[in-house]
Simulated assay, not measured.
Amino acid sequence: MYEVGKCRLREILKAKKMTQVELAALTGISKQQINNYINRQHIVGVMGLGTLRTIAEALKLDSPYELYEMVKIAQSPEEAASD
């Protein structure tokens, strides 16, 4: 089983050599809101699904799921036995 981890927006912007201002212009999302997503990475789920998809498309990601880390969580013995 997996859960959503931290937001990867900062590292994706850096890899694409794109600024928060440029992303804001492409998406219509304010620079302040983009900065909020980046700096509140420890809070899971701050980005709604529509926003997630809008940003993923602007960044030309294969999947919106790339914007967040996916963390495998420990399974209970019962779940492990059913695998």
Rank of each mutant, 00 (worst) to 15 (best):
E79M: 13
E11N: 02
I55V: 11
Y68R: 04
A25H: 02
I55D: 04
E57I: 13
M1A: 15
E69F: 10
I34M: 09
K14A: 11
V46P: 00
S82D: 14
G48A: 10
V4W: 14
L13P: 09
G48C: 07
V44D: 10
I38R: 06
L67C: 06
A80K: 09
G45L: 06
A74D: 14
I38G: 04
S30P: 10
K6W: 04
G48P: 13
R40H: 06
G48Q: 12
P64G: 04
A24C: 09
Q41E: 13
L23V: 08
L13C: 00
Q75S: 12
S63R: 03
M47Q: 03
A74N: 13
S82A: 15
Q41D: 13
C7M: 03
I34P: 09
G50M: 08
Q41S: 15
Q32P: 10
L26H: 05
I38Q: 09
S63L: 01
E66F: 13
E79F: 14
M18Y: 11
V71P: 07
V21L: 14
Y2A: 05
L49F: 14
I43S: 08
K6L: 01
G28D: 13
D83L: 14
S30F: 05
P64Q: 07
L52C: 07
R10E: 01
M70R: 12
E69A: 07
Y68L: 08
K31S: 05
N35K: 11
L52Q: 02
S82M: 15
A80C: 00
R53E: 15
R40L: 10
S30Q: 04
Y65G: 07
R8S: 00
E22I: 07
T19V: 03
Q41L: 00
I43G: 05
I34C: 03
I29Y: 01
L59Y: 00
Y68D: 02
E78C: 07
Q75L: 15
G50R: 05
D83G: 05
P77G: 02
R40D: 02
M1W: 13
N39Q: 12
M47T: 09
R8W: 05
P77D: 04
E22G: 06
E3F: 12
V44M: 05
Y65F: 15
T27K: 01
E66C: 07
P77H: 07
L49N: 11
L9F: 09
G5W: 10
L13I: 03
P77N: 04
Y37T: 04
K6D: 03
M18F: 12
R53M: 14
V71H: 05
